[in-house]
Amino acid sequence: MNIEILGITVLWVFLFGYIMIGAIDFGAGFFNAYSVLTGKQRILTNVIQRYLSPVWEVTNVFLVFFFVGIIGFFPKTAFYYGTTLLVPVSFGIILLAIRGSYYAFETYGARGHKGYSFAYGAAGLLLPASLSIVLTISEGGFVELVDGQPVLDYWKLFTSPLTWSIVVLSIAATLYISAAFLTWYANKAGDREATDLLRKYALIWALPTIITAGGIIFELRKHNPLHYENIQRFWPMFLLSFLLFLGTVFLIWKRRQYGAAFGMLAGQFVFAFFGYGASHYPYLLYPYLTIYDSFTNHAMAIALIIAFVFGLLLLIPSLYLLLRMFLFNKDYVKGKEDHHA
């Protein structure tokens, strides 16, 4: 386990944290807007609103951790990804800004009118799509060096089936993860009506998620044979992920142990995501960047890891405190204790 692998693994965990919490947050925003559209607002809004309140800032920080971390551990990525990702990531920032500010304006400020909650919901879907472009680009074939400067071929990116299958997977997975979590959360809050509606959404989005996931591996065969060869070596992880997926759907279908169902869902995505990550080794960007030639100097690597460990010692207890007081505090979930500022 050399230091480069330790570095990329740590960052991959942060990215995974962002994808899970972000998916729940984005999906919740979309369902909230969708319920306003379809008049089911009174069923969903108070459950979603109570879940969202103190947690949204936490989501954002996971993303900041990931990109500051990757610049710290792999500074060369700044050169390759910085130049090529200006447009997709800028769109991501703008969508994040709309969501983040809308959220604070809405909760603490005035009751926003419908238009803004639609923007919030729409941004919830566009964000996973625009951020997933980064994974597409990492598969290589879209970036080439023109007199020393990396240039992104937008047309090729836009017309590649791999791009669209990853975009569709990111949207389907966002809605699936979010619906499954909110079903559990609504159930804990004892809101029968919301639980049933969200359970329906979870089941609707389960199938597209697993189909598009399979589709990507198929697309990979044409697009990046090296990676396809690599990914086959990790077939046990993907099989396990699929079995967990079946378990989740079964439990939700049978309206039993929504908590366990979400636990298995998390397991499904852990195996799939880390299977994908491990098979991506050693490339950060096919064929230009591997984790070895872009790794930072030894002194900075050690300093970052020490800072990271101390940081986690600081953050895990405070995160636990936050979750214990809100998400998993019985009274808060039931809405009894809402001592708003």
């Binding site: 500051v68 710290g72 551990f73 500074p75 700044a78 050169f79 910085g82 930072t296 900075m300 940081g311």
Partner: peptide
């Protein structure tokens, strides 16, 4: 950032 990342990434982190 490629150059600075090697030396000053710590406070950013």
């Amino acid at each position: 950032m490629e150059l600075a990342g090697n030396v000053i990434a710590l406070p950013l982190f």
